[in-house]
Computed example of a mutant assay.
Amino acid sequence: MNAASGPVPEAPLPRRPYVIRDVTDPWAMRGLEGVQVDAWGYPDREVLPSSMFRISSVCGGVVLGAYPAPLPDAPHDTLALPFGLAFGFPALRDGQLWHHSHLLAVHPDWRGSGLAVALKHAQRERVLAQGITRMTWTFDPLIARNARLNLGKLGARAVSYHADWYALGDDPATAFPADRLMIEWDLSRPSASHPPPAPDGEVVLAAVPGGEEPDAPVLHLNSPQVLAEVPRKAELMNEPLRLGWRLALREVMGEYMERGYVVTDLAAEGERVFYVLTRG
């Protein structure tokens, strides 16, 4: 190996075929705690415990796990650990019944594999079988890959912006603000993935020319469609830069969604991505 060479990167391990199944056994539900730690690095206090999966599963909730497909010589592989989960429960307000999906977690090794989409469609099947046709969930608007999943691959839309949805820290003065977009998915309509469209609309938020930080938001437009840029990989930015984008998105989305705009897609142009906000 010469001085200019580096170690040869290891090839990714081949992914074993998997199955998605309802998790009803309380002991198997303990394995779903580990999926949350693997996916997000949660400390113990943030992990949803298996007891909540258990009680939800007998009260109308949906608890799904993704497991390695059984090997031919071990068709009852009860020791296999899950690497994905979807969890939600019935919600009721003002006489309206729907399903709220609280958790979708995938082990980092399985990101980009289609597993998240498969879990959501399996959840959709279970919810439709209960006679429910609407599903909601929240996601962090700074995570562009999740926006692509929710808006482009599932065909859902974001209907409201919520600042400080969760308290993820001990001190609100120092904790990174956990803002979330509320997603609404009409389960009665066919769901089909589509490629990211080209940006079409007036830009209300973008990075400063030649830089990474957000420019001043534009809050006064009334166009049928506006565009708000989001960093493609904000999770790799330092915290001050991420905070700048968090507050800029909060200002733009809070303003336009309060005026009746909904987030209908994630557009792409080269390495840049933009939320598409459509009026009405």
Rank of each mutant, 00 (worst) to 15 (best):
P49I: 13
A66C: 00
A118D: 14
F87T: 03
Y67E: 04
F53K: 11
A129E: 13
L32E: 05
T138N: 11
A69R: 14
E125K: 12
G61C: 04
H100W: 11
H100V: 08
R45N: 07
R148I: 14
A147I: 02
H76D: 11
L79W: 13
T136F: 05
W98H: 13
T138A: 11
F139H: 15
I143K: 06
A28W: 10
N146E: 02
L149R: 12
R145Q: 10
Q130N: 02
H107I: 00
A105S: 14
T136I: 08
A122Y: 03
S113M: 06
I132N: 02
Q36S: 10
N150E: 06
R54H: 08
L151K: 12
Q96E: 14
V35W: 04
A144Q: 06
A86L: 15
A74D: 15
L85P: 00
P70N: 11
L97K: 12
S51I: 15
C59L: 14
F139W: 15
G112T: 06
D109E: 15
A28F: 10
I143G: 00
H107Y: 04
L154H: 03
D77P: 06
R93H: 15
V127R: 03
W110F: 15
W110K: 00
V117E: 12
Q123G: 06
G31Y: 06
Y67T: 01
A80Y: 07
A86Y: 09
V35F: 04
D77A: 15
L103F: 08
P68M: 12
V63K: 03
V58P: 00
T133M: 12
F87V: 05
S50C: 11
R145M: 06
H100P: 05
A69F: 08
L48C: 08
W110G: 00
A122V: 03
A80V: 07
Y67V: 02
E125T: 11
P72R: 11
F89G: 02
R111D: 05
L104V: 12
A105M: 05
E46I: 10
G152R: 15
S51H: 10
C59Y: 13
H107Q: 01
W110P: 01
A147Y: 00
S57P: 04
T136C: 05
G114C: 11
A86T: 01
F53Q: 09
G60F: 00
S101I: 11
A156S: 15
G84H: 02
H107F: 01
